[in-house]
Design a binder for these strands. Structure first.
Lengths: 146, 146
DNA sequence: GTTGTTGCAAACAGTTTGCACTTAA
DNA sequence: TTAAGTGCAAACTGTTTGCAACAAC
């Protein structure tokens, strides 16, 4: 598995030790299909492979990985969620209002908007976030059934 | 104060009782200058006028006001934040990362994006929210001084 | 061997809840 | 009068921390 090796190297490059917990966490992220994961989902998946990993280890590593720009932390609800940091990711998500699944949206419509804001509102944009709420495929199909 | 009376009526219209805590909370929101407030900011301000109001009262009323469409709840960080719900709000905000002032943005660029999402992602958008982070006029001027 | 990392237990912050008392309508 | 609202205390959830043991380098 090539991508995993890359991740391992990335961690070492950052001066972090390549511990079992971190290895497994990288696997979890790679296997997540780019879905946002919360701490306890990550914890559960890590525990499947290493049954005595502690929650504090998870949280400490998550923070570290965020600090080193390896993953991204979003805070859209009660709990924080995490995903591998995509180079050109600019934080756009589709959030299902039924099952609460969050999917990233690989497209950014905001370039022109930012220019407009800068010019017309005297506001200098540095970051943005877009959230689209609605029904994901599965939930919209279930809706039809009723 | 006309606006406050309106708010009082709105609460009654919704079938809610006009209690002292609720009256003060509406004042707090009206005096907030459309800034997002978290529960403890609201609590502190309510306590100034009614020193024995409890946190659970604040939380219970916040939830109720959200449910009745009087205020809006955002969850951008560790804690939830609240503001009066704007009639024509389609939830676009410019958020200054220095002074945390939040200004509404009277323009919606998302029509085409929603079509794209519906067609390409099997996701049915019903609502959306856009947040632009950056420096407001005042803070960007102060930055220059340094 | 040294420094960074972990497990554990305990603390913490924000929020929610059950229950008896109180109050707006 | 009575359903709705409140205060209090206690619980609960997500997250953080101090410390001693441990493991990657």
């Amino acid at each position: 598995m090539k991508q995993l090796e890359k991740m391992y190297n990335l961690i070492k490059t950052k001066g972090l030790k390549l511990t079992p917990a971190r290895k497994i966490m990288m696997e979890v992220f790679l296997n997540s299909g780019n879905k946002l994961l919360n701490a306890s989902e990550i914890y559960d998946q890590v525990r499947e492979k290493n049954s005595k990993t502690n929650f504090s280890t998870i949280y400490r590593n998550l923070e570290l990985l965020v600090d080193h720009g390896i993953i991204e932390k979003l805070h859209l609800g009660v709990e924080a969620q995490y995903m591998l940091l995509d180079e050109d990711s600019c934080r756009h998500h589709m959030i299902c209002t039924v099952c609460h699944k969050i999917e990233p949206l690989p497209y950014c419509p905001l370039k022109e908007l930012e220019n407009y804001i800068r010019d017309e509102h005297n506001f200098i944009p540095t970051q943005h976030r877009v959230e689209i709420y609605g029904y994901c495929k599965k939930c919209s199909e279930h809706k039809k059934d009723k």
